[in-house]
Structures are given as structure tokens and as C-alpha cells.
């Protein structure tokens, strides 16, 4: 029973984390139309920075190297992770958002991601290279003295609270005039610019906010599994987030929820526990990646709006005094049009 609860709690945590990733990508792509093909890099930077923030200094002689090692309390480590992801988002945005064609933007984000992957992997001094960080301390674990399964449950609640907070903020952003301006840049960059919107700044905001969200998801990830190595954040992981957003429906945060549940939890995480086939250890992840790619392509082909399409904006309207007059107008319009 305890094992089942632990397992469900684990899935619950993954659901919350992927949901945060998907909402972050939704702010970048669904709101502002930024093709971020390196979502998972923001997760990694958030995770690593929170990791080296929570860990103590690297011990000489252990052959394990990493920067910082600040032994920060968890709230500060969380902030460090989130801010680092935001800064990286800003740096990539500096290049990618200079009014480039959308394909250039995609190339730059994808290339930046693979450069960072190589830099982190090849330089053992930053985050211990391809070995990655291990033994990252978990929040409240030392204090509460819980059994592993109970801790997972507590962590799930913790992750759910953070997810809810981010969800509320993302929805506020969507409904605000800023979110509207972001969608206008998504719809037509030139027109939004011609209407006085500083589109570079607006898109940069979406880029950075999205990166911060994904970075926070990364912080939760490294706390939960207490380790992270580059193998855990390849291109295919980015695509899982894209799949969650596209299947769920971009532009709508409800879509991000259902998408993360379907793709990230049911499909992605549940298949991780399948027994691997003898002699072919990589076959299961390969099949999983092929299916996720196919799922996205089929969704775009047959239901491009996703499970939950973006909804029309609603405004509070006072009854219009000229409504009688309006009807005459409409007659004129149809008369003139046909």
C-alpha cells in the first residue's frame, strides 16, 4: 500500500513538474509565438543552479567538481535556480528575438541548447560534466524525518502548491493587456510593432518569464530525484514538453494541464517502468521517442487546436445605449457587402 502511494505520488510530482514546463512553454510559444526548441535547457540550468546552491562545497579529493556549493536554504536555492534560468532566457533572447524569421529563431534556440549541453558535459569543473550532480539535499527532508514514501507525498503537495501559484500567475498574464499584447505579436509582429508595441521587449518578457517557469520546474526536478546529468535533458526531452503543449492545446493553460497528464505522465513516465528488452536497453526509449514524435505530427494534422483550443477573450460590457442604432448599421453593412 505504501509503495502504491509512493508510486502515485511520484507520478503526481512528475505531473506537476511537466505541467510547469508546459505552462512555461505556453507563455513563450502559446502567448508570444516564440519557437523555443530548447525548453529543457532552462530546466537544466534551473536545476543545476539550485543544485549547486543547495549542496555544500565540493570536497577536494573526491573527484567530484562543481561550482558554488553554497549550502543555501531551499527558498534561496529556488530563487537562484529561477533567476539563472531567466538570465539564460534573456541571453538567448538577445540573439534570437532580434526580429529574425521564425525559422532562424528556432535554429538559434536549438543550437544554443546543444552548445550549452556540450559545454556542461565537457567541462567537469562546472557541474561535474557528464557525471552530473548527485546527492542534492531535499527541502524539509532533514527536518521532518519522514519515510521515503511519505516524503514523496509531502513533496507532491509542495510541488502542487508551486504549480498552482504559477498557474494563477500564467492565467493572470494571459488575461492582462500585457498578455493580449503578447498574443498580438504572435499573430502579426509587424502590425503589433506598427501599433506602438515594443515587440522586442514584449517577446523578451515572454521568453524570460517562460524560462523562469521552466527553471522552477527544473529546481523541483533536481530536488525530487536529488541528481541530474546531461543525459536527462537531451533534445527528446524538449520535445516531450512540446508534445504536452500541442496535444493539450496551445494558448490555453488548461490544455497544458491535460497535455502534461496525457503525454508526460501516462505516456512518458509510465513507459519508463516497462521491463527493458534483453540486449537492447535503448529500444524502449527509442520507441517512446518515435511515438511522441508521431503523436505531435498526428495532432497537428488532425486536431491542430489540441484537446482544449484557445478560447475567445471575454470582456465585461455595459449595455450599449446605441444598440438600436447599431441594428440599422448592420443592415447597411450587409447591404454594402453583398
Amino acid at each position: 500500500m505504501a509503495i502504491l502511494i509512493g508510486y502515485l505520488a511520484t507520478l503526481g510530482v512528475y505531473f506537476c513538474i511537466y505541467n510547469i514546463f508546459a505552462i512555461g512553454l505556453n507563455i513563450q510559444f502559446g502567448y508570444a509565438g516564440i519557437l523555443d526548441f530548447t525548453v529543457i535547457t532552462f530546466m537544466a540550468i534551473g536545476a543545476y543552479m539550485a543544485g549547486v546552491g543547495s549542496l555544500g562545497p565540493a570536497q577536494p579529493g573526491t573527484e567530484i567538481y562543481y561550482i558554488l556549493g553554497l549550502s543555501l536554504p531551499w527558498p534561496l536555492a529556488l530563487i537562484l535556480g529561477a533567476v539563472s534560468a531567466g538570465v539564460l532566457g534573456y541571453l538567448i533572447g538577445l540573439i534570437a528575438l532580434r526580429r529574425l524569421r521564425s525559422d532562424y529563431l528556432a535554429i538559434v534556440t536549438l543550437a544554443a541548447g546543444s552548445i550549452i549541453y556540450g559545454l556542461v558535459g565537457n567541462n567537469t569543473k562546472i557541474f561535474d560534466g557528464y557525471e552530473g550532480l548527485v546527492g542534492v539535499p531535499q527541502p524539509f527532508n532533514g527536518v521532518l524525518n519522514l519515510s521515503p514514501n511519505t516524503y514523496d507525498l509531502v513533496f507532491m503537495i509542495f510541488a502542487a502548491v508551486i504549480m498552482l501559484l504559477l498557474w494563477v500567475l500564467a492565467n493572470r498574464l494571459y488575461k492582462s493587456p500585457l498578455g493580449r499584447a503578447m498574443r498580438a505579436t504572435r499573430e502579426d509582429l509587424d502590425v503589433a510593432e506598427a501599433f506602438g508595441k515594443n515587440t522586442y521587449r514584449i517577446r523578451m518578457m515572454a521568453m524570460v518569464i517562460g524560462a523562469v517557469f521552466v527553471g522552477i520546474g527544473g529546481v523541483l526536478t533536481i530536488w525530487f530525484i536529488t541528481a541530474l546529468a546531461p543525459a536527462g535533458w537531451g533534445t527528446s526531452e524538449t520535445f516531450v514538453v512540446w508534445a504536452a503543449l500541442i496535444v493539450g492545446g496551445m494558448g490555453n493553460n488548461k490544455g497544458a494541464v491535460i497535455g502534461s497528464f496525457l503525454v508526460a505522465v501516462l505516456f512518458n513516465e509510465a513507459t519508463r517502468f516497462l521491463p527493458s528488452i534483453n540486449g537492447l536497453p535503448s529500444l524502449i526509449p527509442e520507441i517512446r521517442n518515435i511515438c511522441i514524435g508521431a503523436l505531435v505530427i498526428l495532432t497537428l494534422r488532425f486536431r491542430p487546436q489540441g484537446v482544449f483550443p484557445e478560447r475567445k477573450a471575454k470582456f465585461f460590457e455595459l449595455p450599449l445605449t446605441g444598440r438600436g442604432r447599431e441594428r440599422e448599421h448592420e443592415v447597411v453593412v450587409t447591404g454594402a457587402e453583398e
Binding site: 499584447a181 498580438a184 502579426d188 509587424d190 475567445k312 477573450a313
Partner: peptide, 19 residues
Amino acid sequence: REYPAMTVLENLMVSPLGQ
């Protein structure tokens, strides 16, 4: 060049400067 996937009212709501 309207904003195609936004409503007509929303198309106007984008316009005011310095909101």
C-alpha cells in the same frame, strides 16, 4: 493584416498606446 485568432473586439483592445 488583422490579428486572425483574436476577436474583433480584442483586435481593437490591443491598440491603445501605453496601457
